[in-house]
């Protein structure tokens, strides 16, 4: 499944494949431009006594970097994805169980958090867990000339090697980075993650741009359902 690059919205090409893992209940791999992420969902499963919740399912999220041991950044991303999953899955339907979500980054060319959230959404969709709504995450970068760039591609200089030294520099082309997450029913904001310096006007402008762009992602989800839900 592929959506071609649209120059007006400046969204990168998205491609995805569902159900690529046999051992998981739901799985998806998604590439947005050069960024690539794979996600798997298992659940509802037996929960350990320490995490048991009588009213709803316990959601565990694991986020793995492509190399090196997971650190603070990965824990932070886990926390973001976890709170989003708890919002979009109807966890009350699966009390005293556990839902395990794992995301693995594979290629980082900017906007990886957005890519991971979209992958997780597709994986949950594929697993058949009941959802309140779908979520679409969009990354937006504020460059040094105060221009907003929707879903920018990190362009590696020449034939870039991958070493841990260069890892941290990946998204630092921009002085401000925004990741907005919208729901599919009311198109309202359900999550936001920012870093860097920006004004409140720039923030509002970025949110508006991302909200418009989120329609592309939801259209893409619709195409995916059309392609995979052949029984309906």
């Amino acid at each position: 499944m592929e959506i071609d690059e649209d120059r007006n919205n400046k969204m990168r090409a998205i491609a995805s494949e569902l159900n690529i893992l046999t051992r998981s209940d739901g799985s998806a791999i998604i590439t947005q431009g050069g960024s690539c992420c794979i996600a798997s969902v298992n659940g509802p499963l037996e929960v350990s006594p320490a995490n048991i919740d009588m009213n709803k399912a316990y959601v565990e999220v694991i986020y793995r970097p492509k190399c090196g041991l997971p650190g603070v950044n990965e824990r932070y991303k886990e926390k973001i994805v976890k709170s989003l999953c708890e919002t979009c899955i109807i966890t009350q339907l699966y009390p005293r169980t556990q839902i395990t979500v794992q995301a693995q980054e594979m290629d980082d060319h900017g906007g990886l958090l957005a890519c991971a959230i979209n992958a997780v959404n597709l994986a949950i969709m594929n697993s058949g867990l009941e959802m309140k709504f779908h979520m679409a995450a969009i990354h937006c970068g504020l460059d040094s000339d105060d221009n907003l760039n929707i879903d920018p591609e990190y362009v590696p200089k020449a034939n870039l090697t991958f070493s841990r030294i260069q890892r941290s520099s990946r998204s630092q082309n921009f002085k401000g980075n925004f990741t907005f997450v919208f729901d599919s029913t009311k198109k309202s904001l359900i999550g936001v993650n920012t870093d860097g310096k920006f004004t409140i006007q720039q923030y509002n402008e970025a949110q508006k741009l991302c909200k418009d762009a989120s329609r592309k992602i939801f259209d893409f989800y619709r195409e995916m359902v059309k392609k995979y839900a052949t029984v309906l």
Binding site: S40, I62, Q104
Partner: peptide, 9 residues
């Protein structure tokens, strides 16, 4: 080598 719940539940 890492094997998480993605590999097998």
């Amino acid at each position: 080598v890492e094997m998480g719940p993605m590999a097998a539940p």
